[in-house]
Design a protein around this nucleic acid. Sequence first.
DNA 1: CGGTTAAATAACCTTTGGGTTAAATACGCC
DNA 2: GGCGTATTTAACCCAAAGGTTATTTAACCG
Lengths: 134, 134
Amino acid sequence: MPLDPLSSTFAALADPTRRAILARLALGETSVMELAKPFDMSLPAISKHLKVLEHAGLISRGREAQWRPCRIAPASFKEVDGWLGNFRRFWDESFNRLDGLLEEMKAEEAAKAPPRSNRKVRVQKEKQRGRTRG
Amino acid sequence: MPLDPLSSTFAALADPTRRAILARLALGETSVMELAKPFDMSLPAISKHLKVLEHAGLISRGREAQWRPCRIAPASFKEVDGWLGNFRRFWDESFNRLDGLLEEMKAEEAAKAPPRSNRKVRVQKEKQRGRTRG
DNA sequence: CGGTTAAATAACCTTTGGGTTAAATACGCC
DNA sequence: GGCGTATTTAACCCAAAGGTTATTTAACCG
């Protein structure tokens, strides 16, 4: 019984070896052998980790002769970030528009500048991201 | 052998029941009974899920008479987002400064405006977040 | 005190996960 | 074709995860 995609992705991220592999891949596409080097672990174990990451949509794999170069796949990262966005207001104090407005007001106060007229509160776009801060 | 904090957090998020609980808590603090209602699952099972979430730092629990109200705890969410930030450039095309600059240039080109002098690229603050978009 | 409600713990079961070693597959090269 | 390198698959092991029911703890209420 396969998990829903988001669960698979989070599960894949819940292992330090796999996160280290992703960190390595953030530096650029590379082979399984290369990925395996830093770890005191058998090659099949790495192979399994890669399968988990691939199944989770976090990496994709090409074919070049006998190598299967791995690279970061963006989609699932984006899914995770999107889900996380539902909670951003709990920890990013400048996240919601009201806060943003208040902080702008404070900033103006601090700068002792006269109030400006066409000051606008920026609207959120695309599911909780893309706001100006500070 | 306890997992590192980030692994515990991702593992906690890798279950749809637990994510649903968090989604409910995003609406506000509530009791275990209340949280359990939507699920076709025994109360001890929910209790275990809550323990996992608490251990992962995703919720905290108070005491009010015989109730233990649960609420979202921000810190671990922030940790996850911070980690995710290392990969943001892979899927948020407006994330990195060079892209931002290029897009501004394109926008200016499109507007057929003369080049402006004190146009500045905004600097990233606080680990991969807080950029202006568009 | 005794009863009722809220929640956690204990003991247990079954499935999944992460690791191993040994064998198989895929491809390039001489 | 046969060899060597890269990678996956198979078979197995043990620990951890997610669920259950039965029992226990905690707090209010009358």
